[in-house]
Amino acid sequence: MQQSPPLGSAPALADDYAARGFPVRADLGQHFLRSSESARRLVDRAEIPSGGQVIEVGAGLGTLSATIAAAGCRLWAVERDERLQSQLEQRLGEFGGRARITIDDVRRVDLDQGLEAGSTLVSIMPFAPVLAAALVRHVFGSPRLVRGLVVMPVLGADLLVADEASGLRVEEVDGIAREDFYPPAPSVLRVVAIERSRPCSK
């Protein structure tokens, strides 16, 4: 198994990985956030209740994760790529029990067991539109989740809007530059707020 590059400074961490030629996984729609400022803006946009629980799907290098935890939230970071486990542990170790890491596909995780009622999803979804939409639908299958703020390709957001059966209300609230990621996003991105338009039937 390939080891993660050494920990770099927070704003340039993704650039450190890029400089070392770290191979991103296209099958996961994997891209890493380069900008701590963008991470702070996303957390501000999410309007998370004080001390609230956040689930992050696709925690990556932990740039957004650390920003969420530093804001006083209780974080559950789920990341599928096992190569990133040690990096996440380093990045989130200072937050102790307030930051929990699970290395697995979120679709194999018992969300109802780990989430509290009223939890929020804050994530940068894979930059593969169909996968991004599928993961959002899956996570919102837990009735414990009430709202979300995610970065996703515009086509993924369109898929959610068109899927009336999902019971989700999707609203574009911001944009984010493709160049804020390593590698740069291949298509236009949107920051979308997600809420339920009807109670979860689960």
Results as ranks from 00 to 15, higher is better:
98 R>C: 07
5 P>M: 14
142 S>V: 08
103 I>N: 06
37 E>G: 15
133 A>E: 02
144 R>V: 05
113 Q>T: 09
18 A>W: 04
24 V>H: 14
63 T>K: 04
138 H>R: 00
6 P>Q: 11
31 H>V: 12
19 A>I: 02
141 G>K: 06
90 Q>M: 10
202 K>E: 07
25 R>N: 11
56 E>G: 10
37 E>H: 12
159 L>S: 14
154 V>R: 15
198 R>M: 04
79 E>I: 09
111 L>K: 06
175 G>V: 07
198 R>Y: 06
81 D>L: 03
61 L>Y: 07
61 L>V: 13
200 C>K: 13
48 I>F: 07
52 G>W: 04
193 A>G: 05
134 A>H: 05
21 G>I: 11
108 R>K: 06
40 R>W: 05
178 R>C: 08
110 D>W: 01
180 D>R: 01
123 S>G: 08
157 A>T: 00
16 D>C: 01
23 P>E: 03
71 A>L: 04
107 R>Y: 03
190 R>N: 02
32 F>S: 06
65 S>P: 03
113 Q>E: 15
163 D>F: 08
35 S>C: 09
43 V>R: 12
71 A>V: 01
50 S>R: 12
72 G>A: 13
96 G>K: 02
162 A>P: 10
39 A>S: 09
66 A>D: 11
26 A>L: 12
198 R>I: 00
10 A>N: 03
173 V>A: 03
126 P>K: 14
89 E>A: 09
146 V>K: 14
171 E>T: 09
105 D>C: 01
2 Q>M: 15
98 R>Q: 14
33 L>E: 01
164 E>W: 01
154 V>N: 14
52 G>T: 09
143 P>E: 15
71 A>P: 00
21 G>L: 01
